[in-house]
Design a protein around this nucleic acid. Structure first.
Length: 418
DNA sequence: TGACGTCAAGATCCG
DNA sequence: CGGATCTTGACGTCA
C-alpha cells in the first residue's frame, strides 16, 4: 500500500511552485520559472524519499502555461537532464507519481475549441511524465467533464474524443467520479467501455452517489477490475469532509481514527491511496505511520519533534500526556498518539499557552540572537500580550529567525504552519 | 453574471 | 522599506 498527497508540500523550504500572469509570460520569465519549479520538484522528491512517502501527485503548475500557446518553449528538451535526474530518483526509490488536470480541462465539451484545449492539456501532462521517463503506471487522472443537459450524449462525446487522443496519453489516462455530474457507476461504465482504469473517490461518491446502498468496498472492487497489470496497482482517492464547509470540501487534516476504519473496510486489499487534504504531506505521514508494518517508536518520536510546539501552544496538558505516552520504547502507541494530537489541535489557544510556546521556541535563539533581535522579540511578545498584534506575526518572526540561524529542529517543526 | 476551487501573483495598506 | 492582508488571475460549466 502506497499512501501519498497532492501537488504541494507544506512547511518545507524550497518546494514552492512559481507562476506568473499571462501578460508577463515571456520566454525568459518562463525559463526562469520552469528552472525554479524543477528545483522545487527535485526537493519535493527528496523530501518524499526521506519520509517514506511513495505516492505523489505532481502539480500541473510545474510548467507555467504548459498547455498554452504562450509557452512555445521546448522545455522538455531544454531541461531534459534535470527531468531525467528527477525521474531517476523517482524510479530508484520506487515512488509512483501522477498528474491530475483540474476541473477546467473538459474533454467532452460540445465546443471544439474547448476540446482542443483539453487535448493540448492532456498532451502537456503526458509530456511531463514522459520527460521524467516514467512508465504508463504513472497516471493522468481526469474527470469526465460536463453534462450539457444530456448525460448519455456527454458520455458518448467523451468516448469519441478519448479515442482520438495520442496513444501515449491513452496509455496513462484514468477516469474519476466527480462530486456533481458523473457518479461512480457512470465512470465505471465508460472506463470499462474504453478499457481504461477508474479511480474511486470516496468523498465524491458520498456527495454524488449512485442511487442504492452499495458499499464503498463494492465500488472499489468494481474499479479493481479496470486496473490491468500494465496500469500498476489500483489507486483510489481518499478524503474526509470538512464539517464546517459545504459538502465535498476537503478537511484540514485526516482524522486518523476514521482513516483506520476505512482501511479496515478494505479487508486487506493492496491499494494505492491518494489523500486529498489541506495539510498535505502532514496527513500523509500520519496515515503512513498509522498503517506502518515496521512499528518502531522512532517514527512517532520524529513526529513528536515536529508537532510538540503546536501541541504546547494548544494544550500543555496533552503535551505532558504525549510525553508520557512515548516513554516506553518497546511500544508503538500510534493511535492514541495521533488522537491526542488531533484533540490538542481542536483546543482553543489561550494567550498564556501561546506565550509559553513562543518562549520555548525563542529559547533556541536566546544565546545566538543579537540585542536588536532580542528587543524586537520581547516587544512583539508584549504587543501580543496586549492584543496589539496577532500571534501569527510573532510566529512568523520566530520562523525568520529559525531560517536565519538555520535551526534544523525548528525548520522541521509544524509550529509555524498549524 | 457570479459561484464554484485552487493556488500564487499582484496590489494595497500599514507601521 | 518590509511585512501583512486583500484582490485578481486562469480555467469551463451551470444556475
Amino acid at each position: 500500500m502506497n499512501i501519498g498527497y497532492a501537488c504541494l508540500v507544506v512547511g518545507v523550504q524550497n518546494t514552492d511552485m512559481k507562476s506568473c500572469t499571462l501578460k508577463n509570460a515571456s520566454d525568459e520569465r518562463l525559463l526562469e520559472l520552469i528552472g525554479h519549479n524543477l528545483e522545487s520538484l527535485e526537493n519535493i522528491v527528496g523530501y518524499n524519499i526521506k519520509n517514506n512517502i511513495s505516492l505523489f501527485r505532481i502539480s500541473s503548475d510545474l510548467i507555467p502555461f504548459g498547455s498554452s500557446p504562450v509557452n512555445r518553449l521546448s522545455w522538455d528538451e531544454i531541461f531534459a537532464d534535470r527531468f531525467r535526474c528527477i525521474g531517476q530518483k523517482i524510479k530508484d526509490s520506487g515512488m509512483r507519481v501522477s498528474m491530475h488536470p483540474g476541473q477546467y480541462t473538459v474533454l467532452n465539451s460540445p465546443y471544439t475549441l474547448i476540446v482542443e484545449k483539453a487535448i493540448d492539456d492532456l498532451n502537456y501532462h503526458n509530456r511531463v511524465l514522459k520527460a521524467l521517463e516514467t512508465g504508463p503506471e504513472h497516471k493522468i487522472i481526469l474527470h469526465i467533464g460536463g453534462m450539457y443537459g444530456d448525460k448519455c450524449e456527454a458520455l458518448k462525446r467523451f468516448a469519441l474524443n478519448f479515442n482520438n487522443l495520442d496513444q501515449g496519453v491513452r496509455d496513462r489516462l484514468v477516469v474519476e467520479n466527480d462530486h456533481k455530474a458523473f457518479n461512480i457507476n457512470d465512470v465505471l461504465e465508460i472506463g470499462t467501455n474504453l478499457d481504461i482504469p477508474v479511480v474511486f473517490d470516496n468523498l465524491h461518491n458520498e456527495v454524488n452517489p449512485y442511487p442504492g446502498d452499495r458499499s464503498e468496498k463494492y465500488w472499489i472492487d468494481q474499479c479493481r477490475e479496470t486496473w490491468k497489470s500494465k496500469d500498476g496497482n489500483q489507486k483510489i482517492h481518499y478524503s474526509q469532509q470538512d464539517p464546517a464547509k459545504r459538502p465535498g470540501s476537503h478537511s484540514s487534516t485526516i482524522s486518523v481514527g476514521r482513516f483506520m476504519e476505512f482501511c479496515s473496510s478494505l479487508e486487506g486489499l493492496d491499494i494505492d491511496l491518494m489523500l486529498e487534504v489541506k495539510d498535505k504531506n502532514i496527513s500523509a505521514i500520519k496515515c503512513i505511520n498509522a498503517v506502518a508494518a515496521d512499528k518502531n517508536i522512532k517514527y512517532l518520536e520524529f513526529e513528536w519533534s515536529r508537532y510538540k510546539y503546536s501541541v504546547l501552544e494548544n494544550s500543555p496538558a496533552i503535551y505532558l500526556e504525549i510525553r508520557k505516552l512515548l516513554n516506553n520504547k518497546q511500544d508503538y502507541p500510534v493511535m492514541p498518539f495521533y488522537n491526542l494530537i488531533e484533540e490538542a489541535m481542536k483546543t482553543g489557544k489561550t494567550k498564556g499557552n501561546s506565550v509559553n510556546a513562543m518562549q520555548h521556541v525563542w529559547g533556541y535563539f536566546k544565546n545566538t540572537a543579537s540585542d536588536t533581535e532580542k528587543k524586537r522579540f520581547l516587544k512583539m511578545l508584549e504587543g501580543f500580550e496586549k492584543d496589539q498584534i496577532a500571534s501569527a506575526s510573532v510566529k512568523s518572526y520566530l520562523w525568520r529567525l529559525a531560517v536565519k540561524y538555520d535551526e534544523k529542529y525548528l525548520l522541521d517543526s509544524y509550529y509555524f504552519i498549524l
